[in-house]
Simulated assay, not measured.
Amino acid sequence: MSYDFGIKKLAEVTPSNETPFLIEGLVHRTATMIYGRPKAGKSFVALSAAMALGEGTEWLGREVEQRTTLLWALDPGQEDETLQRFKTANGSDTSHLYITGVRPEDTDEWWAEFTDILLANGVDVLIVDNLSALLGRGSYNNDSDVRPALGRLQALLNEDIAVVLVHHAGKFNEEQGSQKSPMGSTAIEAWGRHFVQVTDDQELRILRVYGNNTPEKELGIALNFNGEGDDGAFVTLIGEEETVAMSAEHDELVARAKARWDSRKDKQKKQGRSPEQKAKADRNRGTDHASQIKAYMSKSPGDWIKQGTITASVPGNSAVLKSALDAMVGNGSLETKTQGRSNLYRLAS
C-alpha cells in the first residue's frame, strides 16, 4: 500500500503524550459544551472555569495551566453583569481572562477578521455564552440555522482555539431535546466532543460529565453566588464518582449488559412487541386481509377486477394487500391474469 497522505499501519502510530483536556476530565482542548436548564447555574460554572484558566489556578481539584481566555458574553447587559461577578469572586488583576460583548455578523468576512484577531492576541480558549444569542434570529431547533454557526466555531477549533459553548438543556416532553441532552437540532450534540450538564437539587449542583475521552461521571458541587468557593470561584467540590463502568471487570460488564438485554426483551413482551408477537400479529393481519379481499370480490363474483381497484377498496397497506393477493393466488382462492400493465383477479370458480 502507498504511504502517501499520512497513511500508515495503526500499529506503527506513535501515541501522543498530550492530554485531550485543558482541565482534566472537565474542559476539552477542542469542543466542550456546558448546558442546563435556566437558573441551573451553567453561566456561573462557565465563568468559574474561565477564571481558573485565566489565572492558572486549580479548579474542582484539578491543576490548571494558565491560558489566554476570551469570554464572549452575548446576552444584553451580560458584559457588565459578568464584570460584577468577577469582582465579587475577587478576580485577579493578573488574570489572562478577557471579555467581549460584540455582536457577530453573518458574513464570512466578519468571522475571518474575528478569527485573525483571536490568533493575533494568542487566545487559547473562547467561551461562548450562549448559543441562542450567537444565532441571533435563528432557531437552535433548525439545522439550517445551527450548522453555519457551528461550522464557524469549528473553523476556530481548526486553528487550535478551544471552544466552550454554553447552551440550554431540553425539558421533559419538549418538542426537541430532553432533560439529559442539549436542546435543539441533533447537529448541536454532534458538534461537541465533551459535555458538562448542570442540574440543580436545591443547594446542590450536579455536574454530569461525559464525552469521547472520559468515562461518564457525576460531580456534586456547592455553588455560592457570593463568589466564595474552596475549589474555584463560586464552586466547592462535594464529591464525585464514575457513573458508567468503563473500568469495570469484563464479567461484571457482560452481566450488566445481559441484565439490560433481558429487561428490554421482557418489556417488549409485556407491550406485545416481541418478535414472536409481531410475527403472529402479521399472520393475523394477513388472514384478515384475505377475508376482506374475498368479501369485497364476492360482490362481483366471476368478474375480473384490477389490483388497483382492490387495494383502493379494501382497508390496509397496498404492499400488504398485494402480498395477500399473491398468497390467495398461491392457495387457489383467486385466479389472476394481466391486461396491458394491469394485474386482474377474480374468485376461483
Rank of each mutant, 00 (worst) to 15 (best):
Y3R: 14
K8G: 05
K8Q: 07
I23G: 02
V27F: 03
V27P: 01
H28N: 15
R29N: 04
R29P: 06
A31C: 06
I34Q: 05
I34A: 05
Y35L: 05
G36N: 02
K42H: 05
S43K: 01
S48P: 09
T57Q: 13
E58R: 12
W59R: 13
G61E: 11
V64W: 11
E65P: 07
E65M: 06
T68V: 13
L71Q: 12
D75T: 06
P76D: 08
P76H: 12
P76E: 10
E81N: 14
T82V: 15
Q84E: 13
G91Q: 09
S92I: 09
D93L: 15
L97I: 06
Y98V: 04
Y98A: 09
R103E: 13
E105C: 01
E105A: 09
T107L: 15
T107M: 15
D108A: 14
E113R: 10
I117G: 02
L119P: 01
A120Q: 08
D124T: 07
V125P: 02
V128H: 02
D129C: 09
G136W: 04
R137L: 11
G138I: 01
N142D: 09
V146K: 14
P148V: 02
A149L: 03
G151M: 05
Q154Y: 07
A155L: 10
E159P: 02
V164I: 07
L165E: 03
L165M: 10
V166I: 04
H168F: 04
G170P: 02
E175L: 14
E175Y: 12
G177T: 03
S181D: 01
G184V: 05
S185W: 11
T186C: 08
I188T: 02
W191P: 03
D200C: 04
D201F: 06
D201C: 03
D201W: 00
Q202Y: 10
R205N: 07
I206W: 11
N213V: 00
T214N: 01
P215S: 09
L219Y: 11
L219V: 08
A222S: 15
F225I: 15
G227K: 08
E228P: 13
D230R: 15
L237Q: 03
E242W: 13
T243P: 12
A248K: 08
H250Q: 14
H250V: 14
L253P: 03
K258N: 12
A259D: 12
A259Y: 08
A259N: 12
R260L: 15
W261G: 10
W261S: 12
Q268R: 15
Q271F: 11
G272T: 06
R273T: 04
P275F: 04
K280N: 14
D282W: 07
R283Q: 06
R283L: 08
N284Q: 09
R285Q: 14
G286F: 04
K294W: 06
M297H: 09
S300N: 06
S300R: 06
S300W: 05
G302L: 00
G308L: 13
G308Q: 13
I310H: 10
I310E: 10
A312G: 14
S313C: 09
V314L: 11
A319L: 03
M328D: 11
M328R: 10
N331P: 05
N331M: 12
N331T: 14
L334I: 00
E335I: 07
K337Q: 15
R341Q: 12
S342T: 07
N343S: 11
R346I: 03
R346M: 09
